[in-house]
Design a protein around this nucleic acid. Sequence first.
RNA 1: GGCUAGGUAGCUCAGCUGGUUAGAGCACACGACUCAUAAUCGUGGGGUCGGGGGUUCAAGUCCCCCCCUCGCCA
Length: 569
Amino acid sequence: MARHLITSAIPYINGIKHLGNLVGSQLPADLFARYQRARGNEVMFICATDEHGTPAELAAAKAGKPVAEYCAEMHEVQAKIAEGFRLSFDHFGRSSSPQNHRLTQHFAVKLAEAGLIREVSETQMYSKADGRFLPDRYIEGTCPNCGFESARGDQCDNCTKQLDPVDLINPHSTISGSTDLEMRGTKHLFLRQSAMKDRLDAWIDSKSDWPVLTTSIAKKWLHDGDGLQDRGITRDLSWGVPAQFEGAPWSGMEGKVFYVWFDAPIEYIAATEEWTEKTGGDWERWWRTDKGADDVTYTQFMGKDNVPFHTLSFPATILGSGEPWKLVDYIKSFNYLNYDGGQFSTSRGRGVFMDQALELLPADYWRWWLLSHAPESADAEFTWENFQVSANKDLADVLGNFVSRITKFTRSKFGEAIPEGGSWGAQEAALIEDLTTRIRAYETHMEEKDIRKAAMELRGIWVAGNEYLQASAPWSVFKTDPDQAAAIARLALNLIPIYAVLSAPFIPDAAKIMLEAMGDEDRGWPGDVKTALEALPAGHAFTTPEVLFRKITDDEREEWQERFAGTRD
RNA sequence: GGCUAGGUAGCUCAGCUGGUUAGAGCACACGACUCAUAAUCGUGGGGUCGGGGGUUCAAGUCCCCCCCUCGCCA
């Protein structure tokens, strides 16, 4: 039995994510996790909320709550929505957990011991009124270049000129509005990624099977300009993992915490440790190659914006520690999903957000559309027309109607049990051959994380059932040879649990309904197709399910199109 | 401006290391069927493979130049 460690990029805590975020990491990771479990493999599927940093502090302040309380609440909200989408995490952790605090500090110590941490003194804008150092983008002022009054400290949105906060005329804090700002000296820890460059380069080079999107981004950061740069791993904040702690090999870091990008990926490991606390399981056999993780296959899923951290920074942390931690084996990355001619926008509320989506339609509809249109080779686009057509055609007409037509036909001619009589001939043999080829192809696509292709093949498998029914026409055979019609119906009914098991990674709820209707909840993966088609014997009772997928009407589509074009709230 | 990825039928996309008449789904037209969620199945029309050069017996597939889209970086 193979062992699969699967992680999804962890969503940031400040608010509910949109469909683009979902399809970029959590959903494909869930697809893969469900598939591997269905194949009988051992799976550890981990996700978490990314809770530290300035945006979380500001969102909490805006909500009028202590940041810890705010994060705890938002974590619950996100966990609930994840459940709504049937994301089957073994554990959905929190980067603010004590486990992550310990582990983050542990890695920092190990990296320092390996000579991979250096201290850097720099000056940054400090706001007395806010009592904090301000990240560049939280400082606004008049652009010295074009006179635009709301230029940010890092860049002017009007003339696009790159800026330094000290360049701004009349700079003020966007948090408090205060103009009482000054440059202050501060000290930070930097991870010496540059020292790891060759090692990382060779490692990336060895991954010839990774998506080009993943390796090209990594290569760019490794070789662009002066090559891989050292990066600060601390910030002047209070909400986070303290950078000064007992046993720290440095001093003077009071009041500073580790920067989110450093502690967030470590949370993958810490979350598994959190899982141990919950279940009593052994987390080290998933993460320590000296403690049983050497046979683990580790796959990460993420949007392209996260690739640099997962291909370079996190591996630098893992490798640099000098300890036998499990390194990722495959990084599946995704492009962006756009919304109806533009981008999804969290700030402007443009597009569909996860909570809203579930209010409109069951999770399966979204899962199917998003996965079958996953932005693998290029950015993809969500349009309501496309969504309506795909869902109605694929789910309602092809799959749903197949289940409906054969169960209703059998019920009316033979009653609600698998009918007896007749025998298989050439048509059935041809179907078995076709399905065998298709199912093996589907397995290959799933193993390779080729999501669109897997979806297409699955759809083809559904179509094969309709083709068979159309060609064998049990409704006319019944008139002259009821026994033969029974044989056809018996086979077609036996397709339902097979379809359910194959489809479950994409549409788990519908799959469950199909299995329940056929009284076959524990059905396993179809190895030999002929055997699988004989699993439900004559006389086995079934029930005729309600409509599996209702159709999306034109009126609904138009209404939604209108509703989600504008601003949220 | 530098870099990545793209630009293939009306739409969404497949096309591996160059090699028979460029494929699929949707849409469209016609036909079959009437068990089924007015669903299904079949057939067909439709493409100068962004543009221009070049290499080759042979290029959507390799090389060069240009145009356009998206993203990243500066």
